[in-house]
Amino acid sequence: MTSPVLALRRAVLERAEVDAELKALMGGAVRLYDEPPRASPPVYALFGDVKAEDWSTDFDRGHEQKLSLIVWAERGSARTALAVAERLAAVLDDAPLVLDAHRLINLRVTEVASERDKDTQFIRVTVRLRAVTEVA
């Protein structure tokens, strides 16, 4: 059986990759990664932390997932990072994603938070989401 976490990640990436506005904001391609890319200048986004908890009922197996997407941009590019984060939020909030071996019950953006990394001075904008899925 496909992991609900991996199924949701795949669906999020597929949804993001077809959004022309998001591609334009990220320099022509959606750059959403599992790990920071080597020698790739920001702006890019990473899948951040995820927590999946049992959300089963008497009749269906399910999970509640709390996940984050983290947008990184170079110093002086806060506007770009915020624009990418806001577009990700718009594309994903309540999106009808299709998941492998799971059904998405709902997907909501719960927070968008911006801060400056104290070591690099890069801008980091975190988009936090909550999803509920059931096994298909």
Score class of each variant (00 low, 15 high):
R87L: 04
G62D: 00
D119V: 11
V18F: 11
K23P: 06
E111N: 15
Q65D: 05
A52F: 05
V98W: 00
H102M: 03
E21F: 09
Y44K: 05
F59G: 09
A52K: 06
A85S: 11
A90W: 05
F59K: 10
A45T: 08
V50N: 01
E53M: 07
S77Q: 15
V112S: 05
V43P: 15
F47H: 01
V109Q: 10
V43K: 00
M26C: 08
G62A: 03
D100Y: 08
A45C: 10
A113L: 12
S68F: 02
A89D: 04
V30G: 10
V71F: 13
L97Y: 01
V71E: 04
V84K: 05
A83W: 01
L32Y: 08
E115I: 00
L88T: 13
S56D: 11
D19A: 12
E21A: 13
R108A: 14
R75S: 13
R79D: 15
H102L: 00
D34V: 03
E64H: 00
V109P: 04
T120N: 03
I105V: 15
L32T: 06
G27K: 05
G48M: 04
D94E: 15
R103C: 07
R87H: 07
I70W: 02
S40V: 15
S77E: 15
L69K: 02
K66R: 14
A24M: 07
L107S: 06
V30W: 08
Q65E: 13
D54I: 04
D60K: 10
A52I: 06
A78K: 15
